[in-house]
Every structure is written in structure tokens, then in C-alpha cells.
Design a protein around this nucleic acid. Sequence first.
DNA 1: CCTTGTGAATATGTTCACAGCA
DNA 2: TGCTGTGAACATATTCACAAGG
Lengths: 209, 209
Amino acid sequence: MSKRNSKEIPDIVIGRLPVYLRTLRLLADDGRDVTSSQELGEHLGISSAQIRKDLSHFGEFGKQGTGYNISFLCNQLQKILNVDRIWPVVLVGAGSLGNAIANYAGFESRGFRIVAIFDEDSKKIGQAMGPVHVDDFAHLSRRIEETGAQIAVIAVPTHVAQRVADQLVEAGLVSILCYAPITLTTPSHVRVEYIDPVIHFQHMTYYLG
Amino acid sequence: MSKRNSKEIPDIVIGRLPVYLRTLRLLADDGRDVTSSQELGEHLGISSAQIRKDLSHFGEFGKQGTGYNISFLCNQLQKILNVDRIWPVVLVGAGSLGNAIANYAGFESRGFRIVAIFDEDSKKIGQAMGPVHVDDFAHLSRRIEETGAQIAVIAVPTHVAQRVADQLVEAGLVSILCYAPITLTTPSHVRVEYIDPVIHFQHMTYYLG
DNA sequence: CCTTGTGAATATGTTCACAGCA
DNA sequence: TGCTGTGAACATATTCACAAGG
């Protein structure tokens, strides 16, 4: 029986769903039709019980004795994660990182589209980058209204990241993915996630003695 | 009293240390000399007790009534994380993401240096990228021996990522940071971490209803 | 006063183990 | 048989709350 409506689902569970979805879609691309919590768990290095419990928060998606229909489960996960649609995303920063993000072809199939890129550098404004042209950061508010974007990516130098975040929040954005190596200060209704490769490196070197 | 030698320190604690270090260094750059677990916690959005307990696994770094000396604590954290030196890192993939990583100027100050970049595309081999020239992926083993690298970054398309990982492992690398959206299969002595912006986006859209 | 470091208490997360169904 | 879904048991992580030091 589904628990969609009871209490609250732990954030850590939500965080694993995209990984399940990603893996299931790779299995589907491989021509596979069904899988089991055990197979999935072995592939991901987690226990089958964890996968079953995670999914059980949202409903009953499997069949006893058989396992999970991959395309059905993909569809369910996409609905749960609200990626059964395309979300517009704005990108701030047209440096080499911004360029790499803008040119990445893998967003659309997973629910996201870069609809605007901003920079303050007049040499970059107007330049084509990935699917769009670099726009003046001063046009931020207007373009956010036009596109309806709720998600932003920050790919600017550390010393301007907080200032950019402040303006994104002021423009009404509520989800920020920050590539700058700094913890942003934002109102509590704004969700911020971080990508910083050095954090991962330093985590690794702890174990390299 | 230090617990460096007792039992085992939880991985989740290790994972937070680089964030503490990053924040402390920004405070130091701001000219600050001391801070407290409370100030740090407020800035990071976590409890002061958690910071104190995390640090207590490694020793006593603070002074009652005063707090922590920032540069001292930075030094201690750098030693704990083994980033009181520069680690050579090899990068596989000279596309736009590889280019962004190679050109990023922020690694060195935090303990890492890109010492080699590999690609299979003969049009890219020999080209200058960041601090080095793109090398033939076939030279991987030799260059790893020469540089002593233990850490690799995978920035190649999804469909070749597992093959690249296999070769990195065969060449003796033990730490891999993977930007391809796929869970790699590796021997248990190899530590793999992942960066996939879409995982973060999908986590966010769950809450955007 | 202030702030640390830490056992004890609490809260959260994971795994076990099995009933129940294809 | 083989596998799911799930309470109960267990393990891990976080917070509380306070003694002790400056």
C-alpha cells in the first residue's frame, strides 16, 4: 500500500531515486525488460532491501517472483521526481565551465533544458553558446519571467557567486546548483546544492594516507 | 583527548571536513583570525554540536570561551585530509568538460594538480589544454608511472566511461572521480565518486512538485 | 560571561527475516 | 520456486545538555 500520503519521505531517499532512474534507463537502453532489487543493488553497491524500502515509500511497483518492469518503473520514478516534463534552467557564467554545461547534450532526455546563459562580460554577451546566445546578466529578471525558470546554475568565480545568488533569489528562483566552491547564504525557501570536485578529491585523499 | 587511533571514523564525518576547510579558508581570506562552532554552523546550515563532535574525532583544536584559531584549524584539517601536499591527478577526456576542468585555476591551492590529459581523438592529441598537452590515451600506463598519480577524473561520454575506468584500474589508479552519468563497476579497493548535475536537478524537482 | 568537548538521549537510517503472492 | 513489501531489530548519526576551562 502506498505511503505517498503519510508523514514525510526522508530526503536521503529522494536523493537515491535519480540514481535508480539513471541506472534503470541504462538497463532499458541495453534492451532489458525486467530487473530485480537484487540485480539493481549489486550494480549500485547497495542492499536490495534498501532499494525495496525506498520504493515502498511511493507505492508497489514490483511483482513477487518476477521483479520490476523496467520501463514501468522508469515512468513511475519520472513522475515521482517530476521529470515527466522539461524544466527550463538558466545558467550564470559563460566561462569554460559554463560553456561545457551549455554544450552538454544529456540534459534534455532527463528533464532539463538550458534556456538562457548570462554573463557580465560584454565580450561574451551575444556570443552563441550551446543552444542559446549569452545574454547580459542585467536582463536576468526579464528573461526569468519570460522563460518561467525556477532552477539556476551558478558557474561563476567564487568571489561573485554570493552576489549572483542574491540576484537569482531576488528574481524569484528557488533552486540553485552552485559550482563555485563556497557555501551560499540564501533564504530558507531556496534549495541550494553544490558541485565541487575538490571536495571529492579531499575526501579521497583522506584514505590515501 | 584525540580519538585518531580509536575505532574508525565515520565516512560521513570525513565528507564534511573538506567543507569545513573550504569555509575556514574563505574566512581566513576575509582576514578573520578566530571563529566558533556556532558561527561556522550558522554559515553552513548545520548545528554547532555537529561541528564540535566531528572535530573531536581528531583532537582538541579549540579553546573554551574563545573558539578556534582559523589558520591553526586549517592546518590541522589539511594534515588530516592529507592535502598538506600536492596530489597529481590525471584527466581522461579532452572535450569541453575536460577543457573546463583543465583550465580551472582553483585546484593547486587546495592540494591538486592536473598532470596529464588523455583522449583517443587524434585531432585533440598534442593540443595544449590548461597546464599540459593532450596525450594519447594509449600512453596512459606509462604516464601514470612517470607522474605517480593515484587519482583520475573521467570526463568522457557515458558509453566509453566503463571501458576507461577498467583501464584506469588496470594502470593502478585507486581513486576515480566520474563525471559520466553511470555507476561504474570497479574492484573494491578502488574508490569512485560521482558528479552528475542531473542527479541534483532531479532531487530539486521532487520538491518543486 | 563565553565556548569547547563529550557522555547520554534521541532521532534517523539500514538490514533482517519472513509472510504472502505470482 | 523467486521475489516483493514490510514490521521489527539493529546500527548509525545527530542533538542535548552540562562540566570544565579561559
